[in-house]
Design a binder for these strands. Structure first.
Length: 448
DNA sequence: ATAGGGTTAG
């Protein structure tokens, strides 16, 4: 507060003048923005029902501050702001009500829905905001309900619902809607929605069916491949194993940022091109691009695939000492796998114990798989105890099978029996492995 | 002025 007063005195403006939309936009915290906004309202003494656009601007900027800050910092400010907006009729402005809805939608679904129902003049953005809110809270059915009943849709509406399906791990439904959108022909895909689709392709591996046709669509329509779109194209091709295509996109990027490099490195690493991945990393450093945390998951993954224990260890240390990144679960995942699969089970176990983050099923499973490989029952015993505590029968069915396999390998048939009984009780079912190839002609699935 | 996006270990 003192800082604001001080800077206002320096600027030579009056208090009210300073509380303009611009000053609010530049405020350093939601609280500061709110103080300025309230001061502005006091000065303007708003009682009429006619909304001055300058006031609604100021309100929107204040709300933007609240929505972009962590919930805990702004959650108490929002109701206070809400009250002021109601008193001054500012809430009748669609921009303001949307911005407020967005604020609530980050924290709580129920409040957002109440507000949504109370907004009289809902426009496309109001609906889009509410759909996004449902999607964010995992209720894609409610999101779809709103999507189906909204009077008109724009590209962001499609984007919101498609994104919702993607995050609920239902890419096929997302792809279906995407094609529906193309066929309806009213909304033209923009780079953002293509990014969403492409990242889903990468996840589900349905490259030929969707990913390639999206790429073809981009080329056919001479769309600008912006930074994000470039990244997701490289990522999609890389993940699906089309490293040549990934490289072509990479080469064509007018400027390459850390994410382009990282996508390339990760793609190469996943498919076992360890040397190439590491060469890419060195090349990246040579061009002066600073790696980020994800870059290191690619680098460590490359080391893992090639069994390069020493190099992996060096990169792992360099990540912290040269670049200041604390290792995250992904990095530990690579390291544990690297050590364990090289037979250094004790080191892998100590690494897990040294972790600053809570180890998850993935980490324990990779160590356990290595215990099976090297028939190390001492460590397996310790790992089994941990892993059974945190495994979810629905998602981690494979772990139970692995545990049972290990006991069988050690000839401990009583324990095998116990695990099998446990599996029956929890209705654990190991997901069946599956793979597919695409036989459909790409041209018939293109989206023109 | 309001909504939606990229790279991550088994």
């Amino acid at each position: 507060m003192d800082r604001i007063k001080f800077s206002i005195r320096l600027s030579g403006l009056s208090w009210a003048e300073s509380a303009s939309a611009v000053a609010i936009r530049l405020a350093s915290s939601p609280k500061e923005a709110l103080i300025l906004f309230k001061a502005r309202l006091r000065h303007r003494n708003l009682q009429t029902t006619v909304v001055d656009p300058h006031d609604s601007h100021a309100a929107v900027f204040t709300l933007k501050h609240c929505s972009s800050c962590p919930i805990t910092n702004s959650s108490r400010l929002i109701p206070s702001l809400h009250a002021h907006l109601l008193k001054t009729s500012l809430l009748s402005c669609a921009h303001v009500s949307c911005a407020l809805l967005h604020c609530y939608s980050i924290a709580t679904l129920s409040f957002a829905r109440i507000l949504f129902d109370e907004i009289p003049n809902k426009n496309v953005v109001t609906y889009n905001t509410m759909i996004t809110c449902y999607a964010r809270h995992g209720n894609v059915i409610a999101a779809r309900g709103l999507f189906d009943q909204m009077p008109e849709r724009d590209i962001a509406s499609w984007s919101a619902i498609i994104c919702g399906y993607m995050h609920r791990c239902n890419p096929s439904q997302a792809f279906l809607l995407f094609r529906e959108m193309i066929q309806a022909g009213k909304s033209k895909p923009d780079p953002m929605i293509l990014v969403t689709i492409l990242s889903g392709c990468a996840e589900s591996g349905s490259l030929g069916l969707i990913g390639k046709s999206v790429h073809a669509y981009i080329e056919r329509n001479h769309m600008d491949v912006n930074v994000q779109l470039g990244t997701s194209l490289i990522g999609m091709y890389g993940r699906c194993g089309c490293l040549k295509s990934a490289f072509t996109v990479f080469e064509r990027m007018p400027e390459r940022n850390v994410m382009h490099w990282t996508s390339m490195i990760c793609g190469l690493a996943i498919h076992g091109y360890s040397e190439e991945a590491l060469a890419f990393f060195e090349r990246m450093l040579g061009t002066g691009v600073r790696p980020n945390k994800v870059t290191f998951t690619g680098v460590l993954n490359a080391c893992k695939h090639a069994g390069m224990v020493e190099a992996g260890h060096n990169y792992f240390c360099s990540m912290k000492s040269d670049f200041g990144f604390d290792p995250e679960i992904y990095h530990y995942g690579c390291m544990v796998d690297l050590l364990a699969n090289s037979g250094m089970l004790d080191d892998a176990y100590s690494m897990i114990q040294s972790m600053k983050v809570e180890p998850n099923v993935v980490i324990w499973t990779s160590l356990l798989a290595a215990c099976k490989k090297y028939k190390n029952f001492d460590i397996a015993e310790k790992v089994i105890e941990k892993v059974l505590q945190i495994a979810e029968p629905d998602d981690d069915g494979g772990v139970y099978t692995l545990v049972s396999d290990l006991y069988a390998l050690g000839g401990r048939w009583n324990d095998v029996q116990k695990v099998r009984v446990l599996m029956d009780r929890l209705v654990v079912r190991k997901k069946r492995g599956s793979s597919f190839i695409e036989v459909e002609d790409l041209r018939s699935s293109s989206c023109s």
